Computed example of a mutant assay.
Amino acid sequence: MSMGADLSSVRVVRFHQLGGPEVLQIETMRRSALGSTDVRVAVKALALNRADAMFRRGQYIETAKLPSTLGYEAAGVVIEVGDAVTDLLVGDAVCVVPQLGASRHGSYADELVVPQQHLVLKPARLSFAEAAAAWMQYLTPYGALVEIADLGQGDTVLITAASSSVGLGAIQIAKLLGAIPIATTLTRDKKSAVMAAGAAHVIATEEESLLGRLQAIVGENGLRAAFDAVGGPQLADIAEVMSPMGVLIVHGALSPEPTLFPLKTALRKSLSVRGYVFSEVVGDAERLARACRFILDGLACGALNPVIDRSFAFDDIVAAHRYLESNQQIGKIVVTL
């Protein structure tokens, strides 16, 4: 069952070699067949993530299978449903919940075929751009802060690289849980925006001592948890300020310097130090269901509110990726169709 013209082709962003933004090409491809549990979605907006740029350059934990699609997030309108789909109808506004395998299931296209289990109804209060921007931004910190750290009322949590969409999402989730978010940025330029997003304290790590400021903020109580996107030498400073039995979760490697495991500090404080990626949530049906309920509830009540930095047209996808790599943004970059 379909709505509108039955077009035979779709426009898809792909790359045939690893490299900078210039390797991205918009190609016209034959429409994919619809399986019995699949849903065809006309995309109204898609969102960019730092992982997309790393994936394109061959630096991400997932390896691109060339020629490759890319992207994890989109929102749009259902235009066709498979015979076994019962919970979605043609005309429904939906969000694409990120799938694994960006080379095959990339979201950068004007039309997508998505398994029904990776779609949820778009919250009415959100625009399509906001709905596209919500999922990696909240799924990633949800798994770390809720499922792993089990943050609660009054817990202190450090969130590094906090001006990113995931960092801002982590601040909002921490506040929703009643925790106290302490954030870092590189310089003071983004400090006010991160404070406005809800951080209790913001440390500019290129201009202030991370260790000294953290010690002044948390005192003898220490950090209950840390959600670190940077790694590198600062991991030792973070470990030094953790409370006994604290949880230090590393989800990124923005630092170009080696990351050494703070063994003696971890032993002395009985710390949990572990790597984490969003696929831990997406790859587990029960955890994904819990995450979706948490995120949808937060979006519905306004406690979670996606921050959009800038919007680009689909034809300007190369320019959008150049901006993504400029590190100027505060929040999410989206593409609208």
Rank of each mutant, 00 (worst) to 15 (best):
G71W: 07
Y72W: 05
Y72H: 05
E73M: 06
A74P: 11
A75M: 05
A75P: 03
G76E: 12
G76M: 11
V77S: 06
V77P: 02
V77D: 09
V78T: 08
V78I: 14
V78P: 09
V78M: 10
V78C: 07
I79D: 03
E80H: 02
E80K: 13
V81F: 06
G82S: 04
D83L: 04
D83H: 07
D83I: 08
A84E: 15
A84Y: 05
A84P: 00
V85G: 03
V85I: 04
T86I: 08
T86V: 09
T86R: 13
T86P: 00
D87K: 11
D87I: 03
L88M: 10
L89D: 12
L89W: 00
L89Y: 03
V90A: 10
V90N: 10
V90E: 07
V90T: 12
V90I: 15
G91T: 03
D92Y: 01
D92W: 01
D92N: 11
A93K: 06
V94K: 06
C95L: 11
C95N: 12
V96G: 02
V96E: 00
V96T: 00
V96K: 04
V97S: 00
V97Y: 03
V97R: 00
V97F: 04
V97N: 01
P98M: 04
P98I: 02
P98A: 03
P98Q: 04
Q99T: 09
Q99F: 00
Q99H: 01
Q99N: 03
L100K: 05
L100Q: 09
L100R: 05
L100Y: 01
L100F: 02
L100T: 06
G101D: 07
G101Q: 06
G101Y: 08
A102Y: 08
S103W: 04
S103E: 05
S103A: 09
R104S: 09
H105Y: 12
H105A: 10
H105M: 00
H105F: 11
G106D: 09
G106S: 10
S107C: 11
S107I: 02
S107E: 03
S107R: 04
S107W: 01
S107P: 00
Y108N: 02
Y108A: 09
A109L: 06
D110M: 10
D110S: 07
D110F: 10
D110A: 11
E111N: 11
E111Y: 06
E111R: 11
L112Q: 14
L112R: 13
V113I: 15
P115E: 00
P115R: 02
P115S: 01
Q117Y: 09
L119E: 08
L119V: 03
V120C: 13
V120R: 13
V120A: 15
L121P: 08
L121Y: 07
K122N: 13
K122Q: 14
K122P: 12
K122M: 15
K122F: 13
P123G: 14
P123V: 14
P123M: 12
P123K: 14
P123L: 15
R125Y: 06
R125K: 14
R125W: 00
R125P: 07
R125D: 12
R125Q: 15
L126M: 15
L126C: 15
S127Q: 14
S127M: 13
S127C: 13
